[in-house]
Design a protein around this nucleic acid. Structure first.
Lengths: 130, 130, 130, 130
DNA sequence: GTGGTCTAGACCACG
DNA sequence: GTGGTCTAGACCACC
């Protein structure tokens, strides 16, 4: 499992963790039953305040992605993968919607917007190859 | 000029005002030299505290979009349109970039993402006709 | 008499007028007994709100530079020249003091400051010739 | 770091703070990465309303001098020193220019002006020794 | 504990 | 009537 944090990008750290755990579950990088790092360990790994990890794990529990097994830490719960996959699609769709709506309301032409979109995708894909 | 505020969408009110003023300048709805509503008038129109408006106007001044003529209110400054148009393009591109990158990193297929994008655009455009 | 106003340089317009009238008196461009333009005329000349002129003239009266002659407008008072000359020197000295002190407190080297000073003087003098 | 406020000298308090922070950065009294006092602490130190400090810090942020690290206060940003040094020079030069131009336009002889300048510098330097 | 946002209202300078 | 400054204090998000 791989989590990368950018403390200065506006998105709260705990939220970044929540998203990335969900993405890892959606991708299969984390499978049901698997144990996730303890709060303290993950805090050390990311050099982040443990309270922040704690908060992320709480949210993941209330979303049904993690379960506490008494005395043995946090584990990915049974139906997690399915819900994460659909959440991921929804989340991304929502954010895309926000950006697109604001862009079009701001008077940008759909053609310009599409061109921007495609160029961003292309750039990301080509950066992967390198 | 049309400004609509959603006080509960996470984006600070002053920021919403700043963006919409810039969009209006970029669109030509506000032209150089034109006067914008006084702090107090706009506050009444939007039923918002004048200080919030003032903060927005301050930001717009430091961005070179507005100029204050002593005792005669705020006016759109000379080179405003040009800079607003380019800022708009950059802003939107940046936000698009954030969403696209996160989506692809989350393991979404480019094809799926493109499909989402197109459907969002279609939906927005059809909502306009109605 | 020549007065030039810059409405956007931070210094209040009425203050600019006061200073320039005093400078004109100090230079001899305005002499004792001479009549200055009426509030309305000067307002038209400078395309400025008459209230602003009014305020400037009030200040000039309370400084003893102008006197009202009943029904015949404002005139330069008797001892005006002498006081204006000395005020001018003081004013300038004070402002120079402010700038120099702040510059030195800010850690600028006296040599650097002197160099700046000389270059500014040179530039002004050469701009006069052209 | 040393900041002294004069609430009655015409220059807004927030502006005095902004300048002095920049001067401190230019002088090396504040170095990149270093933390500045929290809004509330500085407010207590200077016995000033926290909002006033915050306004100063906001300006410093938008000028790229400060960066906020979430939940851990304001820090001097990376390239701050360089930009502050050059800003300082420009600021001082501008103000010098204003004074010098007005003095010469007012009919003061360059020689008189230079004498004033030198005497002000001398006085400041000798006041330092004491 | 940190800063960020918003409201409320006072006071002043300027035109 | 315009904006500019400052104070006061509440509320929230984040760490």
């Amino acid at each position: 499992m791989l989590i990368s944090i950018d403390p200065s990008n506006g998105i709260p750290i705990y939220e970044q963790i929540v998203r990335q755990v969900k993405y890892n579950v959606a991708n299969g990088a984390l499978v049901s039953g698997q144990q996730v790092p303890s709060v303290r360990d993950l805090a050390k790994m990311l050099t982040i305040n443990p309270n922040t990890i704690q908060r992320a794990y709480q949210l993941l529990q209330s979303d049904g992605v993690l379960e506490t097994v008494r005395g043995r830490g946090q584990h990915v719960s049974a139906g997690a993968k399915r819900s994460c996959v659909s959440q991921r699609a929804n989340l991304i769709r929502e954010r895309l919607e926000l950006v697109v709506e604001e862009a079009l309301q701001a008077g940008l032409e759909p053609a310009e917007l599409r061109e921007s979109f495609e160029s961003v995708v292309r750039r990301y894909l080509s950066s992967l190859k390198s």
